[in-house]
Computed example of a mutant assay.
Amino acid sequence: MTPEDPSDLPGIENASPDLRHAGAVVDQAIDYMTKQSLDPVAIASALLGGAMGMLTMHLGPDAVLAVLDQARASVESGEMASLAEPPAQGHA
């Protein structure tokens, strides 16, 4: 699987063009920061902080909490564990 070919990802065909584009840009940013030897937890924390900022600027508190609840459910179900396989690509 490569960033240029996200068709390997399940459900990617249902993602909006904006989501696919944003996911590809984020993947490139992660790749760049990784190659700069930045700490993976620092990268993830910065991305999460930025995402939370964007969500709170554009969604109400209940919608943000719903997104976080879904993320928590994905972690609890083990769905996110599949993204831990090196390197995770196409998070859209």
Rank of each mutant, 00 (worst) to 15 (best):
P87E: 10
L68H: 11
R72C: 07
L59M: 12
E85K: 15
S82V: 07
L59P: 03
D62I: 05
L59K: 11
P86A: 15
A84H: 08
P61W: 10
A66K: 01
T56R: 15
S82D: 09
A71E: 09
E79R: 08
A71Q: 09
V64Q: 01
G78R: 03
M57E: 14
A66T: 00
A66L: 00
D62V: 06
E76F: 02
A88T: 02
V64D: 01
A71I: 10
R72D: 08
M57Q: 15
L83A: 12
S74I: 00
Q70G: 08
A63Q: 08
S74N: 04
Q70D: 10
M80T: 03
G78A: 04
E76R: 02
M80G: 04
H58I: 07
A73Q: 05
Q70K: 13
D69P: 06
E76C: 00
A88D: 04
E79I: 05
T56F: 14
A88H: 07
D62S: 11
P87F: 11
R72P: 05
L68C: 13
H58Q: 13
A66V: 00
M80I: 05
P87I: 06
L83V: 06
Q70Y: 10
S82P: 03
G60Y: 05
P86N: 14
A73S: 03
V64Y: 02
L68V: 13
V64W: 03
Q70L: 10
P61A: 13
A71P: 06
L59V: 05
E79G: 07
